[in-house]
């Protein structure tokens, strides 16, 4: 899947990240409910074409690192009452993440 033209990965497993609080129009695969929230990189999934570009029939290059980010439910939802370890994992492209 990886092609020479790839954006270098800025994060690794265990990195603490925050999802950018952005609100662009168009086709975006970063769910609303995780924007602005803190999580930890669970794994690097590899490099993939950017869906925000693919949606308009462009090539989506350079490929972007895609991560699986783990968010505690208590971080996502203030009033969450289940186990403190309950978590949601979401695939997020690098350009939506900032180091924390």
């Amino acid at each position: 899947m990886s092609v020479p033209e790839a954006v270098p990965a800025r994060f690794g497993p265990g990195s603490r990240v925050q999802v950018r609080r952005a609100d662009p129009p168009g086709h975006v695969r970063t769910p609303w409910y995780c924007r602005g929230h803190n999580g930890v990189i669970e794994r690097i999934c590899g490099n993939f074409a950017n869906p925000e570009e693919l949606a308009y029939n462009r090539d989506g290059l350079p490929v972007q690192p895609l991560y699986r980010v783990r968010f505690l439910c208590r971080e996502l939802w203030r009033d969450y009452e289940g186990n403190a370890g309950d978590a949601v994992e979401i695939e997020i492209f690098q350009h939506w993440l900032e180091a924390r």
Partner: peptide, 26 residues
Amino acid sequence: RKVLQEFGTRIPDEVEIRVHDSTADM
């Protein structure tokens, strides 16, 4: 936990739940 109960599944409190949202290529 509530949704799983609607499917008849009770997860004990001490068991952690991980929900996986398939948003991209996995």
